[in-house]
Design a protein around this nucleic acid. Sequence first.
DNA 1: CAGGCGTTGCTGGA
DNA 2: TCCAGCAACGCCTG
Length: 537
Amino acid sequence: MATGSGSLIWFRKGLRVHDNPALEYASKGSEFMYPVFVIDPHYMESDPSAFSPGSSRAGVNRIRFLLESLKDLDSSLKKLGSRLLVFKGEPGEVLVRCLQEWKVKRLCFEYDTDPYYQALDVKVKDYASSTGVEVFSPVSHTLFNPAHIIEKNGGKPPLSYQSFLKVAGEPSCAKSELVMSYSSLPPIGDIGNLGISEVPSLEELGYKDDEQADWTPFRGGESEALKRLTKSISDKAWVANFEKPKGDPSAFLKPATTVMSPYLKFGCLSSRYFYQCLQNIYKDVKKHTSPPVSLLGQLLWREFFYTTAFGTPNFDKMKGNRICKQIPWNEDHAMLAAWRDGKTGYPWIDAIMVQLLKWGWMHHLARHCVACFLTRGDLFIHWEQGRDVFERLLIDSDWAINNGNWMWLSCSSFFYQFNRIYSPISFGKKYDPDGKYIRHFLPVLKDMPKQYIYEPWTAPLSVQTKANCIVGKDYPKPMVLHDSASKECKRKMGEAYALNKKMDGKVDEENLRDLRRKLQKDEHEESKIRNQRPKLK
DNA sequence: CAGGCGTTGCTGGA
DNA sequence: TCCAGCAACGCCTG
């Protein structure tokens, strides 16, 4: 039986002191408070067999971002008379052991809609309740409770942004006061026989020095988040005029967006506090942009995807996903690897992928370009495989948002105009005609004259020689011809859509296999005709 | 069941 | 910088 007067606050996301209802409840009326973070070795420890430095699940950039966030949280807690207790192990088992060892009356942790936590939390909650421990698990990662919106919408999540806005209305934080700070927190209680540690370093998790050099410029933590937020919104005119689609995806020294996403992902920044800051600015200016394109609109897109993801079984898969078009994507590991490693031969695409590898972040529109290229635009490879690469490498990778956007970009759900394809040549050129972005992330092309920088294979050999970059040797030849590849993709998408329509959403594996066979046959016929053409002429 | 609409396409022209 | 023309999808609303 739980007889103690202590509380356990379990940090997972929500790595912050400000606006943290679980922390607030845990600290209230408790003699002792145990702030716990559990390091899951699968997620955190080095795995040398992975294709990029990192664990088996996450790239080293995100792991470092998380460690920095934990250090910052620990230091904030220490200033308030507490500290972070760090454990290593399977989180569910560790939590049960903590509950057994410490006689706490309350277990507090932020509610999480991700499937991983849904499964984990049930186990921990059940154990706690069965031993008489009060469980407090508030919704504070998002502005809305996704379950409430789904209920209001008749049991299914709204599938368009506009209908989402209508159902959602105003979030409760629009009118409520947030607890932003404390004068002190309860001290930690007796630890008993449990082995705790400080927040580990990357070295302590098995990472070598050479896996850490020249990586992301974004530092983790609540302090960093609040600093960044203050700086981002200090220019009220910039906030008021923010229009997402007009941002420059090639800006990297000073990104065109706020780069608050990794802080929102880990909960270093409260979305509700962000919301209130934006509303205060909108009140002060004469006119401002509106959702979906405004800064507030971006926060609401996050809510939109959290809600659709929570209310859609198998949201992260094509099969068994009610809202996902069934499309006969190709399996091609070599092509996937070339895309992943920034070796497609299209500098704009490759530079974006290198920025992802090095920084773990790139502009939203840059993500669109590479996602479109991999799936419906050029390579016709499954969105789930691109999703996996993003999920590993992005410092802001968020289960609901990442899956939602991959379905969006691959025209599998939410967005269906598959004739609109991003050009891997002209899209970047619009913003960055000199190719500064390409030169920075692909130094091999740094001396290529600007008229060839987006299509280096068109440069005369003398120019390539002078630029110290021979295409086919120093930099790859384009893996596909965009004009014919995109045309082919459009045709396949058209056929796949027709099949989905015909089957009224009940496409099975056999239907897909048949269509795949038909598409391959058509492609074969066409290439035969293409090959004959020179002879005819 | 038709018509309007949808955060972010492309090219080419003014 | 903005527009037409291109080709043309499904979802939502009335």
